[in-house]
Design a protein around this nucleic acid. Structure first.
Lengths: 107, 107
DNA sequence: TTTATATATTGCTATATTACGATAATAAAG
DNA sequence: CTTTATTATCGTAATATAGCAATATATAAA
């Protein structure tokens, strides 16, 4: 069906899946890395840096914003994107905790 | 297009994206959590536990196996799945390192 | 006001994903 | 060998995603 049966899973499972989904595209990984590499908040050289069309980048930025991983501040006609450090750390902690908790038993 | 332009990204970015994609489904999260909760390697009570059809579970298990996160040992007519602790830890480290490295600069 | 620039939105196509019924494959049990 | 149980694979439908051209929106500059 292409549709995930979210109802049968709990909030934590669905939340983790959403986070992983946002991160499951190399363009979005590249965007995050590029934004973080700049010394200051970076505006849209992103389109030049990554080899994708402007609407595509804009869509990816929107998805990253959807889980609050990045933030866009309007500066004149440009928008300045930067990583939301608070949420970034929260997500890191959440994923780490998932890995840690799920590490217990094995053959 | 629905097709990701993997060529324009580097190996690390693509590898991270693949890992995140495997984890980006709540059924697969639930399967991993269920497997890890059992004291011994659990076989296909997974189908009973998760509310999805057997072929669907089988497909999800295949995807988890594709990045070596779990392992299936054939025991008679049953298959005994368990988390591959070595790869599990490797993935945890890789993701953590991604989060750590990408945490540097921000507004 | 007009023009130029930066970003977002819309609409579309191609491909991927999720899910399941039907069926095949495998192996233990009879 | 046949039956039964377990898991995998195939085929298919519905929906999601990635990407882009065209266009809209917004703001600075002229």
């Amino acid at each position: 069906m292409g549709i995930t049966k979210t109802q049968i899973f709990n909030i934590e499972q669905n939340e983790l899946a959403v986070i992983f989904k946002v991160l499951s595209n190399p363009a979005r990984i590249a965007i995050l890395q590029y934004i973080s590499q700049q010394n200051a908040c970076i505006c849209n050289d992103i389109v030049d840096e990554i080899g994708l069309a402007q609407p595509t980048i804009s869509q990816h930025l929107k998805e990253l914003k959807s889980i609050d991983l990045i933030r866009g501040e309007i500066e004149g006609k440009k928008v300045c994107y930067c990583i939301n450090l608070k949420q970034w750390t929260a997500v890191q902690t959440l994923l780490n905790s998932f890995f840690e908790t799920t590490k217990d038993n094995c053959c």
